[in-house]
Design a protein around this nucleic acid. Structure first.
Lengths: 361, 361
DNA sequence: ACACGTGCTGAATCCGGAA
DNA sequence: ATTCCGGATTCAGCACGTG
């Protein structure tokens, strides 16, 4: 399967994603994250109860003549994706009820093998303003391997478990939508109508790739995949048709500070009986990997890693475990033991736990 | 459209659901809940970490030769369902990633119009024993109308909102799986491998049907739909091939104590209250022509004319139109916008509407 | 500095009956 | 089938301005 073509790592290629994927060497990428057009079929405008206007996704790239046209498009890009994927690679697709059933059926038809469907539950979805439906509060992701018999796909089970309070990570993920400072703007307007939150890609890349892996995003848009890939020490290849999105994405990714390799080490195998409800704080960016924690008397120090584990000299593990080991104690409540520096102030990480709980209600 | 056939209300018909649906009069049922075979493609047996055997769904009725066979089956039962459904009826289907994408695509192809997809999040899902996937912690439901232009579907928005602490019900529902005393047993073994929890049907029937409605379940199984329908004062029709399930279901439903009608009344929408024209308020002398109305902040004024229209400077028209025009809004609820002076107190004219309604019954 | 209120916004298939 | 119009309808998060 070797090929003379070299992969255009950490760059964005402009053009049609199907042609571009077909121009890349086959079996060359470790993971594909795809956020294709949803083919929303909106009719008329929508207003909030306060009579303000809802800025809908009515971009030309989301318009298809019929299901048949959308299906043909879906089949083409999925087939191209299957070709460039390594035999042990995986594909992630995100969508809503408008398109995800069609995408899911088509990828099964092509021989992809579904590993999980994952629900992104939004903490802050747009309500149903007319009171005629349930709040459309989630989107669906499909995670699949190249075919039924594929082996060796990356799944960092233990890292995800640590990120989730030492409980096996479920198929429903609660995360906020992309808003506030994270939302890219150009001249005060949304740079892209459907920018995804970095926390979502953070979890996906942590779960299904390793350092140095190649991640392809055929619908690159504002470049969330690239930004998170760079932060997490993965290589990205972005495909995008529109010049304006490429410009925004390049600028965005340039500003990303990659985490250092030692902070990217995640829990790989059986851990030593830890109790860790700390991963979501890191995932949500309330603390970042590399941050140094210390106890209230500043006798001990430890460093945060990407999966929410701590490292101090030759010890690593959950916030509880490391706290206990350092003190020579049999147990320790890491939440109250560890502190971080916030503008000169020593603040307990328990404050962050409150914050996450508040968000999760 | 009329037919001489009478509906077999509150009974279970034995046989093939497609034939049976086609034998029922068309446009005759208000809602269909369908829990079709998931077509799980299991290979080999599954064991827990303690080496105990997992009792998997390996029933003969869940086996299909290929996606094509499953799709053909899906198309047939969906088409039959579409036929028996009233024009303002809705269909609910539940499935997992094994089948739901195929079902969703097919129902879109048949012209059903998706209203929501709903995620049933399980509080107590079976873990992934191998540590190779995310915990498969949810199932997906699709709620759809008969076609894109369907109108008048039942959705008890206000009732659901009250059920959810006065916050609009979201598309993700957290409910336990069916276990414990609710789980039907025969000779100590599960009576049916995929029995659904009554709480799930309770929410669905409360949301999308009214008392006295006819609910059809083409894959009746152990009869959860029938049990909850009876409890909630809905009529059910169950279709089931297997004698053993019918026996269990009949016995189960017989034991159900229906709730009394007054306990079944749910919060209703303002939309369902009788319309009162503003003119009748004037007609009845609750307000008289010449009276001056104003908004709550007293920024706008208008005068009532004899026919129930308002005048403000050069604008005249209904209470709604004048309110909208004055504010520069696209619409306005005149009933809540306008106030009048009653002995120094500012009173909403909506009070007068209530008065008329009270007099009307 | 901190509390509080106001305003804006987010992948949305978002009304129904009478004329 | 199309138009008109009465009148019902929103949650969480963040930015910003005021006290």
């Amino acid at each position: 399967m070797s090929t003379s073509k070299k992969l255009p790592l950490n760059s964005i290629l402009q053009g049609d994603c199907i042609e571009l994927m077909n121009s890349l060497p086959e079996k060359s990428v470790d993971m594909i994250f795809a956020d294709p057009p949803y083919n929303m079929q909106l009719s008329g405008e929508l207003r909030r109860p306060d009579d303000s206007h809802v800025d809908a996704v009515d971009d030309h790239w989301d318009q298809f003549e019929s299901f048949a046209v959308y299906d043909a498009f879906t089949e083409e890009w999925l087939a191209a994706a299957q070709r460039v994927l390594k035999d042990d690679g995986t594909l992630w697709v995100i969508g809503s009820y408008h398109n995800i059933f069609r995408v899911g059926a088509k990828l099964q038809d092509l021989g992809f093998w579904i590993l999980n469907d994952v629900i992104w539950r939004k903490t802050n979805p747009m309500p149903n303003f007319r009171g005629t439906r349930f709040t459309n509060a989630h989107e669906t992701l499909i995670w699949c391997s190249k075919d039924r018999n594929a082996k060796g796909m990356t799944f960092n089970y233990d890292a995800l478990k640590v990120m989730n309070d030492d409980i096996q990570m479920r198929s429903d993920w609660l995360l906020p939508i992309c808003s506030g400072g994270e939302r890219l703007k150009v001249d005060g307007e949304k740079a892209h109508t459907t920018q995804k939150p970095e926390a979502l890609l953070y979890r996906i890349l942590t779960a299904a790739t390793n350092q140095g892996d190649v991640v392809l995003d055929p619908f690159f848009g504002s470049g969330t995949t690239g930004a998170v890939a760079r932060k997490l020490g993965r290589n990205y290849i972005g495909l995008e048709r529109e010049e304006k999105y490429i410009k925004v994405a390049k600028e965005r990714i340039r500003k990303v500070q990659p985490l250092s390799p030692e902070n990217l080490e995640v829990t790989t195998s059986k851990r030593q009986e830890p109790r860790v409800p700390f991963g979501s704080v890191v995932e949500r960016g309330l603390l970042s990997a590399g941050q140094v924690l210390f106890d209230s008397r500043k006798r001990y120090r430890a460093r945060v890693r990407a999966d929410g584990s701590l490292v101090a000299s030759d010890i690593s593990g959950s916030i509880h475990k490391v706290g206990a080991r350092l003190q020579g104690a049999s147990s320790c409540n890491g939440w109250t033991f560890w502190h971080f520096d916030a503008e000169g102030q020593s603040v307990s990480i328990d404050v962050l736990r409150q914050q996450v709980r508040a968000e999760m209600n």
